[in-house]
Computed example of a mutant assay.
Amino acid sequence: MSELIDNLLFLARHEGPIEGAALSQRMSIQELLISLCEYGKAQSFQKKRQFIYDIPSVKTVVKADSQLLRRAFTNLLDNAFKYTKKHGIVELCLQVQSHSVLIQVKDDGTGIPEVDLPKIFERFYRIDAARSRHTGGFGLGLSITQQIIHAHSGEITVVSTVGKGSTFQVRLPIS
């Protein structure tokens, strides 16, 4: 219940575009992702999944609100762990490109039906009722994640195959 209230408060506070000075703070994307690797290791142990990460050590600076980005990537990791079966694999990867960084959260879980892909970023959207009862959640995490990524002049995409898993890709500009 507290998660639902927290998400609803976030959406209420950020009804329109997210703005603020914190969005232009210079930060190392590697430092943020390495701290999320600790979270991923704990989740993998608790949920009996494998967690693999590939974060290059070369410091890359982006302009961002670190708390908001942490929330976005935590949402993606939580979903990956939630929809991956026991002993499945969740990956977090960073690729540094010429003008942007590409962060991928991959899993070999249940996947998302193609018909649902255009709707998964909508508020309160759930793929099916049985899945909702089994895994919990309220259909707000991906909507919030997309809003945060767009506020950072980034983009989020997903590729998914039912029974084989999903790959969420976030591209953020390098400052």
Rank of each mutant, 00 (worst) to 15 (best):
D78R: 04
S44N: 06
Y83K: 03
L172N: 03
K63T: 04
S44V: 00
P17W: 01
E122D: 13
V58L: 14
L172R: 02
E3P: 06
A42N: 12
G137V: 00
Q67G: 08
M1L: 14
Q169N: 13
H87V: 05
S143A: 12
I149E: 02
G154P: 00
T145A: 11
R26E: 15
R49C: 09
S98R: 08
L9S: 05
H14C: 00
L36E: 07
I5A: 11
I52W: 04
L77Y: 01
N79Y: 02
Q67L: 13
L117N: 01
L8K: 10
K47A: 13
I156E: 06
I34G: 01
R131G: 13
V58R: 12
G139M: 12
V159K: 02
S166Q: 07
Y53D: 04
R133T: 10
N75L: 02
C37W: 01
E91N: 08
A151P: 07
L94H: 01
E114S: 14
K82D: 02
C37Q: 03
R123E: 13
I174W: 01
D6W: 08
H87A: 11
L68F: 02
L76N: 01
K47F: 15
S100P: 03
V90H: 04
Q97G: 08
D116K: 07
Q169M: 12
R171P: 02
A129W: 10
I18H: 03
Q25W: 14
I18L: 05
G136R: 06
S57T: 14
S160I: 02
V105W: 02
G109N: 00
Q104D: 10
L94W: 04
P56C: 07
F51H: 03
D107S: 05
R13H: 10
R133I: 11
V90N: 02
K164N: 10
H99V: 03
T167G: 07
R49T: 00
E155C: 08
I156P: 05
G109C: 05
G20E: 14
F45Q: 15
V58Y: 08
A12L: 12
S66Q: 12
L77A: 07
S153Y: 15
K82H: 06
H87L: 11
Y83A: 02
Q95E: 15
V158R: 09
E122G: 05
P17S: 14
Y125F: 10
L68A: 06
D54R: 10
L8Q: 12
L36H: 04
F124W: 06
T110M: 14
Y53V: 00
V62T: 06
G20A: 11
K85P: 08
G40V: 08
K106M: 09
R131L: 15
P173A: 05
Q97V: 08
D6P: 07
